[in-house]
């Protein structure tokens, strides 16, 4: 097979995002990561929910499913569990994954299903034209909170670490190189990987802008020396500094890998069960157990 380039992973459909949307970067980084891994597009399945970010799979070549608001993870589990030979990537956003769909997060993580979840975190509902999301900072204005929101945001990294994700990282849509590296690692990781991409929305979120992040990012691996990625407590500790970043406008946001461990995946466990139970070729035999037993 000829060597594939990033372009070969893009569909004919042109993105519908606003100019300057961070999601363009995520699309590019994903295509590059897939090209670097030389994945067969026919064996990559992108699954998304609803929202600006969830349009992304439509712009990728391969098999893609643009499903329901908050339900991408459920659909992706069905694909992966029934077809473990496929690479399944969930594309989601902060509203999709941490508001309407948040009930699915603990379960996909604790089961260590071999999916890659890429969450584009723009901290706002963009498709419905500016409402605050579960990751919006306090005081952010939205059409339903014109007084500035009084809600506290959630910390996606801390949540996914708590739930048992085996790869947890954060990256930034303005840094194509870092993003490509992280997404590539996440796809290669065996088990549930969660990548939170800080993805600015220039249209509706004036707080979390490219300008702001230009000098408010710190690389936890390179700059803070977080190198033992199996150290869960350390990962949690770093994730907790997120609170500073939300409450203190001068605090820095983190990028980098928080946590990465190898654990048996859901599929590994399924294979063990199947081996133990064995195979029955005859359907008739499975029906005949309902006959009165011979004695």
């Amino acid at each position: 097979m000829a060597v594939l380039t990033a372009k070969d992973y893009r569909s004919e459909v042109e993105p519908t995002w606003c100019p300057g949307c961070g999601d363009f970067g995520v699309l590019n980084a994903t295509a590059r990561a897939l090209a670097e891994l030389q994945k067969d597009p026919a064996k990559v399945v992108g699954v998304s929910g609803i929202g600006c970010s969830s349009r992304l799979p439509l712009f990728l070549k391969g098999y893609n499913a643009h499903t329901l608001h908050g339900r991408a993870i459920t659909f992706a589990i069905g694909v992966k569990v029934s077809r473990p030979d496929l690479d399944v990537i969930v594309f989601t956003g902060d509203g999709d994954m941490f508001s309407i769909g948040s009930g699915h997060n603990p379960h996909v993580a604790r089961r260590n299903i071999d999916l890659t979840i890429i969450m584009m975190d723009n901290k706002v509902y963009g498709l419905t034209k500016n409402q605050v999301s579960p990751t919006s900072r306090e005081g952010q204005y939205g059409s339903l909170t014109p007084y500035g929101t009084i809600d506290h945001p959630v910390n996606p990294i801390q949540y996914m670490l708590t739930f048992g994700a085996t790869y947890v990282a954060q990256t930034y849509a303005g840094n194509l190189k870092h993003m490509t590296k992280i997404i590539k690692e996440a796809i290669e990781h065996k088990g549930l990987s969660f990548v939170n991409v800080i993805s600015p929305c220039p249209t509706f979120n004036k707080l979390d802008s490219y300008k702001f992040y230009k000098d408010h990012l710190v690389d936890i691996n390179e700059e803070l020396g977080h190198t033992d990625l199996t150290d869960y407590k350390k990962a949690m500790d770093i994730a907790m500094h997120w609170a500073d970043y939300y409450h203190d406008p001068n605090a820095k946001a983190h990028i980098g890998v928080y946590y990465k461990v190898e654990k048996p995946t859901y599929h590994d466990m399924v294979e063990q069960v199947k081996a133990k139970v064995g195979h029955e070729e005859s359907i008739q035999k499975l029906i005949d157990v309902c006959k009165p037993k011979a004695i």
Partner: peptide, 29 residues
Amino acid sequence: DLIKRGGWLYQAEDEIASLGMALGASFAG
């Protein structure tokens, strides 16, 4: 029976997830 026939039963977290998963598997063939 399902396991013996090469399939799998997945206990979902709720009914919304159940149907989402079942449809994902259907999409996968």
